[in-house]
Design a protein around this nucleic acid. Structure first.
Lengths: 141, 141
DNA sequence: TTAAGGTAGATGCAAACGCATTAATCTCAC
DNA sequence: GTGAGATTAATGCGTTTGCATCTACCTTAA
């Protein structure tokens, strides 16, 4: 068992533990965490996002994402626009209600995250960010 | 946006990127990654594991885990034993075929993990392990 | 211009999931 | 002991997921 494998296992474990903890908190309203994640990703980009772009940020298959966007659109949280430059494509953005919902959930959730990380020192938090950024390969666009 | 929130976001991103990358690799045979994870968790403990114990290590609801164990049992990879000390409980262990399957998948996958972590220095790998262990709260038992 | 190949996103369908609930067993105060 | 409440794992059921495939559109080169 290499160090790398131990680190990966430890990372997965931290992810699972924290995900369960966050999921158990009563801040999600009538959204699932996955749905919230989509709203959050959209909230980060002011310009409408391509489906494929969004897909890169979300741990879901492309069809599952497509249908999730269906549902969020149905619920008036997300809007689909045709992409002027590419008629196959779609541009996604939050509706005002979607932005509102994202914020309402995001605020208490962000506090939970801060609380969960309070066992770490400030240096450790920064190191973690640096290391995981490197790990993700800095796939900028 | 606090440092903690940035670190969490970065961790989630690393998790998603690596999960997708690993999932795309052709090492899983006819198992899903989630199924492999169950086999792996069982392979780590020589003594049969309680369902509830296993559940703590896996990112699945309790019913979903119960049914996944059904399927793995059906496929002769996992065995359910009654727990002598608690007649509600179940003790789970790998069958020889399950252990074999876990190893056959685990070997190439471990190499992938090592490769994915090769962008990090040895110090960073160790720091990551330490920090994520702290984060998970060291919920030993 | 047009045919060949690639990419974006949607859809059919079976399998798997989560929530709510249940059955069975354990625990412990009385 | 016994009954109230907690805990373990399984089941009913509607929803969501992934795989395979499909349609529509873009791109390139001849």
């Amino acid at each position: 068992m290499t160090r790398a494998n131990e680190a990966w296992e430890s990372l997965m474990r931290a992810y699972a533990v924290l995900m369960k903890r966050f999921n158990a908190e009563d801040v999600w309203g009538d959204l699932t965490m996955r749905e919230y994640d989509v709203l959050y990703q959209l909230s980060k980009c002011d310009s409408p996002l391509r489906m494929s772009e969004l897909h890169r940020h979300v741990l879901l298959s492309q069809p599952a994402l497509s249908r999730m966007v269906d549902r969020l659109t149905e619920r008036n949280l997300v809007e689909r626009h045709p992409d002027p430059g590419d008629r196959r494509g779609v541009r996604l953005s939050l509706t005002p209600a979607g932005r509102e919902t994202q914020r309402a959930i995001g605020r208490p959730h962000a506090r939970s995250v801060t609380r969960a990380f309070s066992t770490l020192t400030a240096e450790e938090i920064d190191q973690l960010a640096v290391i995981t950024r490197k790990l993700a390969g800095n796939e900028e666009k």
